[in-house]
């Protein structure tokens, strides 16, 4: 098993055998831990697809599994894993974050309140929203 820390929290997925630094997920599981889906044309998000490099196929796909870490590196997106390879973070790159902000459409998110109830920014469409941060520290 591997734990992937997604934006909505830790998600447990079965990881196939591989080297530390490889994340071999069952094809349908890429959607559990990212916005990307494995299709015949490659790993896709909406209309964008990252094809499997023909000269290094084995590093990216193997039988029914996908090395999501290899795709992430290929897309120049930041990632990190624990030394034992059990915990992963697949991050978003600066270019995508910047595009999200400069569109001026406020990036949506969903976070829990103290009772664990999830609230999304988009729940409050139709109101002026003052988004204000604070912290106990």
């Amino acid at each position: 098993m591997a734990t992937v820390l997604t934006e909505s929290g830790p998600v447990e997925v079965s990881a196939g055998p591989g080297l530390v630094g490889e994340l071999w997920l069952a094809r349908p599981d890429t959607e559990k831990v990212s916005d990307w889906t494995m299709k015949p044309e490659g790993l896709c998000k909406g209309d964008i697809c990252m094809p499997v490099p023909t000269d290094r196929t084995d590093e990216f796909v193997r039988d029914d599994r996908v090395n999501l870490a290899a795709f992430w590196q290929r897309m120049n997106k930041p990632l990190a894993h624990s030394a034992d390879g059990d915990v992963w973070v697949l991050g978003e790159d600066a270019e995508d974050r910047t595009a999200g902000l400069t569109s001026l459409d406020a990036p949506d998110f969903a976070l829990p309140d103290l009772d664990g109830k999830l609230h999304s920014l988009s729940d409050y469409r139709g109101k002026k929203v003052l988004l204000a941060t604070w912290a106990s520290w």
Binding site: R97, D105, A106, P107, L121, R125, K128, V129, L131, T133
Partner: peptide, 25 residues
């Protein structure tokens, strides 16, 4: 996990973002 800091490039507290009725910053 400070997801908002990642999404909105925040660096401290208190910080704020003003978003209008259409979800525009």
């Amino acid at each position: 996990y400070h997801q908002l800091a990642d999404l909105y490039n925040m660096v401290n507290v208190p910080q704020a973002v003003w978003i209008n009725e259409d979800g525009r910053i």
